Amino acid sequence: MRLISLIFASLLATPALSCGPDTDCALGERHYRIAMPDGHDGTTAVGAIVFAHGYRGSARGIMRNQNLRRMVSDMGLALIAVKSASDDWVLPNSPRRKDVDGSVEFNYMDAVIADASSRFAIDTDRMMMTGFSAGGMMTWNMACHRPDMFAGFVPISGTFWLEAPAECAGPVANVIHIHGDDDPTVPLAGRPIADTHQGDVMEALDMYAAYGGFGPSATRNTERLACKDRSNPAGDILNFCMFEGGHSFRSEYVKFGWETFAGSGKL
């Protein structure tokens, strides 16, 4: 009996062992999941990609994307999958939530990073946030309201609800927006949803370009992406990349974002 009690006490004393890619890391009534790179020694600090799911998504669903998991692991990075409290993120001007300021989600993200970096060997200076669809909306809001939390932000197929904020918090963030050129779910100009409207991607980019003092764009093409790259005198990045197609996600877009930031010395 004493041996069983000691084992139980030991398990309670090591909460890091109780969560990971297949088990929730509890944060009060919220949670997240994390996958360290394969073969990680448990002590060497590694960079991280934080991924926000789309509408009705989950941290578990993100971790079930084996292609994403394998890619991030091969990059030597941790994958942190965050989870909304209900079906969707509570963001300004979102459906039936026009009067919220988003602080509940921003505070949750603060808590996730603090908790993950205390449980796991995470280099908080080498973190990038990304997300698809509603997760892209979450990513844009984080870039505006918590810009110093991540070295770069890659919103995919999602922007602000209704309209871009009048102003953002400093410092200026590094942002790469990726979007399909024929997206019917989140069109570039947005569409009505319930009692609100999706925002216009170009308006968001124009707002941030003015806010960050970004100059004219330069064209750059990859195999799948047609990009318009901007920078400012401080060397910050604001890129807009389109792919042919609709509302779809490829893991390679996440890698493209990380490698772009890394190649510019941001990570």
Score class of each variant (00 low, 15 high):
63 M>V: 06
238 L>F: 09
10 S>G: 13
95 P>E: 01
122 I>H: 12
16 A>R: 15
75 M>E: 11
129 M>D: 02
175 V>M: 07
98 K>E: 15
104 V>L: 15
156 I>S: 01
65 N>V: 10
168 C>E: 06
125 D>T: 08
214 F>W: 05
209 A>I: 02
176 I>P: 01
134 A>C: 11
11 L>A: 13
39 G>A: 09
193 I>N: 07
164 A>P: 10
145 H>D: 13
192 P>R: 11
163 E>S: 08
73 S>A: 11
45 A>F: 03
95 P>A: 07
183 D>I: 02
64 R>I: 08
98 K>H: 05
94 S>E: 10
197 H>Y: 08
94 S>R: 10
197 H>P: 02
2 R>W: 12
61 G>T: 11
245 G>V: 00
184 P>L: 04
216 P>N: 14
258 W>R: 03
229 D>H: 11
245 G>R: 08
89 W>P: 04
3 L>V: 06
41 D>M: 12
73 S>W: 07
82 V>C: 05
1 M>C: 15
83 K>A: 15
120 F>M: 03
243 F>L: 00
85 A>E: 09
55 Y>R: 07
68 L>E: 02
65 N>W: 09
80 I>D: 04
249 F>S: 10
203 E>S: 14
131 G>L: 00
43 T>F: 02
215 G>E: 14
96 R>K: 13
17 L>Q: 08
171 P>K: 07
219 T>K: 15
